[in-house]
């Protein structure tokens, strides 16, 4: 067993542990932190697999941008306390068992996969320059297409996030407001 193997096992254990902690942690903030830890371990896996570009992007985009956004929202909502009401214990158990079954079944099924090797440490396809070349030669169309995705997400964020203009009051809006009031009442909020 070489150093890489040992590193793999350690990282695997770390990522599983931190992932579990995401699920288990009572406080949303802790969950976020543990998720960031998980991302870091996964980035480490990337490094181990010599996929440096992805390792970097993962940290920058995921751990850096996305998770901070999450954290930001949680803070904004003041959800850092253990405000989450507990779900029915049985339902939780059933959920966990069901998930466990899925894992067992899939692992049992995929156990028969051919034992093939993944190249660790070496191989240079994961380097920025090589990936970039492929991206802009072969994958330029999907790259452009993803811009549509971003455009729509952008529009979406505007549509959803923009506060409803109170000047434009139409029947449907009044109706909606009334319904919101009713809903709040009914939910006891």
């Amino acid at each position: 067993m070489g150093i890489t193997q040992i590193l793999f096992w350690i990282l695997a254990a770390a990522s599983l542990l931190s992932a579990l902690m995401v699920v288990i942690s009572k406080s949303p903030v802790y969950s976020v932190i543990w998720l960031i830890v998980t991302f870091f371990t996964i980035s480490a896996h990337y490094v181990l697999l010599n996929a440096q570009f992805l390792a970097v992007v993962n940290i920058i985009v995921y751990a850096g941008a996305i998770m901070v956004l999450f954290l930001f929202v949680i803070m904004l909502m003041n959800l850092n306390k253990e405000t989450e009401p507990q779900k029915n214990r049985w339902l939780k158990l059933i959920g966990a068992v069901a998930g466990g079954c899925l894992l067992v079944v899939m692992v049992a099924a995929l156990r028969d996969t051919d034992s093939r090797m993944a190249q660790l440490g070496s191989g240079n396809i994961g380097l920025i320059q090589n990936l970039g070349a492929v991206l802009f030669k072969e994958y330029v169309v999907p790259f452009e297409i993803s811009s549509i995705l971003f455009l729509s997400a952008m529009v979406g964020a505007v549509v959803i996030g923009k506060k409803e203009d109170s000047k434009v009051v139409d029947i449907a809006g009044d109706e909606a407001k009334r319904r919101v009031a009713e809903a709040r009442e009914s939910m006891g909020v």
């Binding site: 995401v22 699920v23 949303p28 959800l79 989450e84 779900k87 339902l91 939780k92 959920g95």
Partner: peptide, 8 residues
């Protein structure tokens, strides 16, 4: 399956 907080 087990969490209720939408963000989590």
């Amino acid at each position: 399956l087990t969490r209720r907080n939408a963000i989590i």
